[in-house]
Design a binder for these strands. Structure first.
Lengths: 193, 193
DNA sequence: CCTACCGATCGGTAGG
DNA sequence: CCTACCGATCGGTAGG
């Protein structure tokens, strides 16, 4: 276990930016705010990053990668749909709780990406959502899920999953695994036959 | 039925601002953007509104009022908890679907309010959430709800309810009433004994 | 990593 | 509702 870790300046900038973009929003965070929080002059930031949007891109696509690796594992597992869905939920919760600031930025600040990154991002997100829909369809084929509309169901599921960053506290009562279990209980009851 | 309505300039500014604050965010919307969309000069806006934040305040507290009137009706109804919860969900969905832009601003841009409005806003929001928790507690006392943690349950419920503005289309397949019913089905199954 | 600086744009005011 | 304008701040660059 690595409790403290020496961050490179670039990593430090990214970490501070994640927090500030989350707290104040991308647009309302100035490069001078960011530089001040890091402890250097605004101009010096540009020795480590290309532009303000470059930081945003790294945050958004970094988390997108995390979500993708998580769902890939589940998809390749050949498990029954109910177990797949439980694991997908658990993995999703884990990505968020491991990256609270970055997840919040991923969820709300992506719209400040410019093209072509914006379109790329939307494609990735759609593809991820598609993976969840496939699990619901599989469950209906297996005969264990009700004939729900998978689009509506997944929208509701993602809503519940994606608000976690807003209230989860690492010091709170529930562990990420417990949160995933409770959410599974709550949201699987309404879909199981 | 009033299909078209003559808006005063002030109402027009508010309407355009709701849309722009939602689409680009409060911080990234300039008074010049807003004035341009309205069709006047930036300086002329100040004959109708006091400041940029003044517009944000009107939007946020206006929707807060709507939510409060909705939940008050439910609270005074003396219905069993299950019926109360269904109605509260239905009313909540109705407020959002009737005010898509303003709801999005209410949910995401309130953090740009300055004190003392920020604290006032948070109090209103907490009080509203409290009303939902009371319904869950009532249901547990009635013996019809499981021994769930009402805080966790309401967090999940609000997550599902508050994401609706993001995907609801007035021209879509589901009416607000149908959305409320489907959400009630999905989210009440996990809590009912 | 800094000083010095760029043109552009910000929210808002004065005065008519 | 406009023209004209304010000081402050923006993201970013040049040059060392």
């Amino acid at each position: 276990m690595q409790l403290t870790k020496k961050l490179t300046r670039k990593e430090q900038i990214k970490k501070v930016a994640q927090n500030m973009f989350r707290e104040r929003g991308y647009s309302a965070t100035s490069m001078r705010d960011l530089a001040n929080a890091v402890g250097i002059e605004a101009a010096s930031l540009y020795n480590h990053i290309k532009s303000k949007e470059d930081i945003l891109r790294q945050i958004c696509f970094g988390i997108a990668d995390d979500f993708f690796h998580a769902i890939e594992q589940v998809e390749q597992s050949n498990l029954p749909a109910e177990e797949k869905l439980k694991q997908a939920i658990s993995q999703h919760v884990k990505v968020i709780t491991n990256n609270l600031d970055a997840s919040a930025v991923f969820l709300h600040e992506w719209r400040f990406l410019s093209e072509p990154y914006l379109s790329d991002f939307k494609k990735l997100r759609d593809s991820y959502e598609q993976s969840f829909k496939k699990i619901i369809i599989q469950g209906k084929e297996e005969g264990i899920f009700k004939a729900v509309d998978e689009k509506f169901y997944c929208l509701t599921l993602f809503s519940a999953l994606n608000w976690i960053y807003d209230w989860y506290k690492p010091t709170g009562l529930l562990s990420p695994q417990q949160i995933a279990e409770q959410l599974s209980n709550l949201l699987l009851e309404g879909i199981k036959k």
